[in-house]
């Protein structure tokens, strides 16, 4: 079980969290302006890398806040977690 650092609450076990998919995929401001292909990309296309991955978590059984994390998908090592609007770790 992962130990995850909620930016508000600190280190907590994984069971307190819910994964929420890839991070930094902003909802288009005006979806109607997107082509079908662009919209499909927003809906379904994700990076799924082998390596560093920026993803969202929610501390659902804690403070309830969404935040971002950078995790290595092979080792599950977290480079860090950060609040929405903050810069990811270098």
């Amino acid at each position: 079980m992962l130990l995850i650092r909620c930016p508000w609450c600190g280190d907590r076990p994984e069971v307190e969290f819910r994964h929420a998919g890839e991070a930094h995929i902003a909802r288009p401001a005006d979806p109607a302006m997107l082509t079908d292909a662009e919209w499909a990309g927003f809906l379904y296309e994700r990076a799924n890398p082998r390596g560093d991955y920026r993803e969202r978590w929610r501390h659902i059984h804690g403070c309830g806040r969404f935040f971002n994390a950078q995790r290595h998908t092979l080792t599950d090592r977290f480079a860090g977690t950060y609040r929405p609007g903050e810069e990811p770790p270098a």
Partner: peptide, 13 residues
């Protein structure tokens, strides 16, 4: 509630 919180916190803060 999870979906509504998601939009409220991350898309429409």
């Amino acid at each position: 509630l999870h979906l509504l919180e998601d939009y409220l916190q991350t898309e429409f803060p």
